[in-house]
Simulated assay, not measured.
Amino acid sequence: MNNKTYLAIPNFRNDQTFNVNSNIYLWQNDYFEIFQNIPCGGIDSESFNVDDANYLAIANHYSGSSYKHNSQIFKFGENSFEKIQDIQTNGAFDWEKIIINNQLYLAVANFYDDSTRELDSYIYKWEGSSLVRYQSIKTKGATDWDSFVIDGYMYVAIANYHDNKTHNTESKIYRWTEPLLNFNLSVTPSYKKVPPNTGITTFIVKSNQSWTATTTTPWLTIQTNNNTITANYEENTDESRTGTITVTAEGASNSPQIVEVRQESGIIDLEEGLVAYYPFNGNANDESGNGNHGTVYGAILIEDRFGNKNSAYSFDGIDDYIGLEKFYLQGKK
């Protein structure tokens, strides 16, 4: 978010109480630093984005006295997450984001309601500025949701744990009744040329399904926010190089897309614009080819710092010097 990387860690309990904080961490170049404490003892979290705003759902499992415990939805404000909605849940174990034809749904897995594990889990639909219950699904001690696309249809799987009598119970897979709209994934531009010094470049992603971006290039780090990938590249002191970013949208006909960051060489060409070169190979001749030879006045040849004989000059500090009788610059006298 805002070209920054956050990590949400729900904390369920400590050794004394279920009344604990969950934590949001902010990435600081090479470590995570605590950013915000959220006063809820959660067991799972799910982030999602709607209309360029960022949200976080926390699944609250147990209050310390009851499994009938509200889960919560937070919205990222100017500089913190703020609670915008309580949702009644029963031993909530998991939130799962599902995007169908550009419409956001969230599924919650209800585990136990203080009396039974045979109870409904729910799918909520985002409408306006909050989640509204959309569908109930019979579950048995539900612990997890997952969603996936096959041949243009959206599926959801629910993991059932216990039916009040046995763990030997069926889990279920459901299919959305209508096919997904045909859609493509677009990432532009296909490559960016960047200089050898450290810097940042961006790519734009267009897709009506959720997407992810990853890289295995060691000198690239990436962040995603809304429809933008921000790539941070390190300084290059060697030959030119190319890094790749893979963008994937589940179910897209042309997914994945691979874009490139092409970084120029950081090797300095000492011969470009060279006027004179004096290696002192037994004399003060210019070996650049420009003919700017030196004339030695009093200085004497000695060993250089590497022990090479007649490869350096010693000056008395009074009147010894090497002079240039004629000097040629860019082919002119």
Rank of each mutant, 00 (worst) to 15 (best):
A8T: 10
Y25K: 05
Q36G: 02
N37P: 10
D51E: 14
L56K: 07
A59G: 04
S65Y: 14
Q72L: 09
Q88L: 13
Q88C: 10
I100D: 04
I100W: 06
L104Q: 02
N110G: 07
Y112K: 03
D113A: 08
D114F: 05
D114E: 09
S115P: 10
S115Y: 14
T116N: 09
Y124T: 06
W126M: 04
G128I: 06
G128T: 03
S129W: 07
S130L: 11
L131R: 11
R133E: 15
K138C: 03
D146I: 01
S147I: 06
D151N: 15
K165R: 06
N168Y: 08
N168H: 02
E170A: 14
T177V: 07
L181M: 04
T188K: 13
S190P: 11
K192I: 00
K192C: 07
K193Q: 13
K193N: 15
N197P: 01
T198K: 06
T198P: 04
A213N: 00
T215I: 04
P218W: 01
I222P: 00
T224Y: 05
N225P: 09
I229H: 12
A231S: 04
A231K: 09
N232L: 06
T242G: 01
V247S: 03
S253Y: 12
I258D: 02
V259H: 02
R262W: 03
Q263S: 11
S265L: 12
G266A: 06
Y278I: 05
E287K: 13
N292V: 08
Y297S: 12
Y297R: 08
G298H: 04
K309P: 15
S311H: 14
A312I: 00
F315H: 00
G323K: 12
F327A: 10
